[in-house]
Amino acid sequence: MWTWFHRLASPPTFYRLADRLVPWLGLLAAGLLGYGIFGGLLLAPADYQQGDAFRIIYVHVPAAALSLSVYVLMAAAGAVAVIWRIKLAECVLVAAAPIGASFTALALVTGMLWGKPMWGAYWVWDARLTSELILLFLYAGVIGLNQAIEEPRAAARACGLLALIGVINVPIVHYSVEWWNSLHQGSTILKLGRPNMSADMARPLYAALLGTYCFFGVALLRRVQNELLLRERGTAWVKEQLRSAHV
């Protein structure tokens, strides 16, 4: 088990594995996102209260879900990077931050565009919106810290610590709508038991959600590959990659 894990974490093995995974993940992402967007815009009926404005859910919820998941992944990679000093974990940590930040910003802005016509305000300082904004700042902190420290391995370890400190915010974002009263409504998809959404509305949402995660996989693997090339410069396998890329 451990030897298998170590082989997977070796830069050349992972680099080649990523090359093989990306096309499949990309195909999956395109199919799921295509169906999710098409279904969300055309197949799903308008909501009984919100009308067509509710269709923003098909971009807002996947972006928001991803913003939390990516942070957890980043913190986990941070822990591995700090404790075991594994290079691949450093790459994952550094590569995940800009993707996570972009989807957090998307979740915030689509939320504002949803809030204005439905609630009557772009922004309110309730617990959910405030903690999600803090999440964006945490991502920005990791990105900034990584750029501020010259030595890449030291930078990654510092970022790992910051990511770990910030992970406390993730359950706060998620449970903010249950622990405190807020203007933001409760969770629709992560609630077990009674359905909160009719099936013809939910199907495209689940597709968009899965598709967004597959898309994240593609974006992450590509960025990790870039980091690996940079950190392993001069090694035989990078030279081999350079040769094959130039032919």
């Binding site: 996102l33 967007i37 815009l41 308008a46 009308g51 067509d52 404005a53 269709r55 923003i56 971009v59 807002h60 972006a63 800009p98 993707i99 972009s102 989807f103 910003a105 998307l106 802005v109 689509t110 565009l113 949803w114 204005k116 016509p117 898309f215 593609v218 974006a219 590509r222 960025r223 590959q225 870039n226």
Partner: peptide, 28 residues
């Protein structure tokens, strides 16, 4: 027209498309 919410709905989908495009183009 999206029931009068065109700006909000299409604005959201447009921004989502921009974020997806950036995440594909930037690493490339």
């Amino acid at each position: 027209n999206m029931g009068g919410y065109a700006v909000y709905v299409w604005g959201s989908y447009g921004l989502a498309a921009a974020v997806l495009a950036w995440n594909l183009l930037a690493p490339r």
